[in-house]
Amino acid sequence: MGPDEIIHQSLRLRIMATLNSLPKGEKLEFTRLKGLLKATDGNLGAHIATLETAGYVAVEKDFVDRKPRTRIAVTAAGRRAFESHVGYLRELIDGAGEG
């Protein structure tokens, strides 16, 4: 088990922690995620794109009352990668070794 460089970046880590806390399959709106993480549109969008390219999140775009809506959900691969990364961090603290 090793660190996941994609997940370990601060904002991406917090994105994954937030989405991973939702029940399986549940999506969170981009605007809500932005408010929770106190991120800007551009910054959050760029990091979500990175996570989507890695297959860790899925982005869904639709319209509600003719207004565009973007929702993000963690994928199964994303959950596994996040749990693996958290496990690595915990092992590091417990003194199993340094990366």
């Binding site: 370990h8 922690a17 993480l37 590091l92 340094e98």
Partner: peptide, 19 residues
């Protein structure tokens, strides 16, 4: 990629905060 114990502790703290 090198992660120190301090980095790991901080990262876990950020995870708890986000949750």
């Amino acid at each position: 990629m090198t992660i120190t114990k301090e980095d790991a502790s901080q990262a876990l703290g950020e995870i708890d905060q986000a949750r």
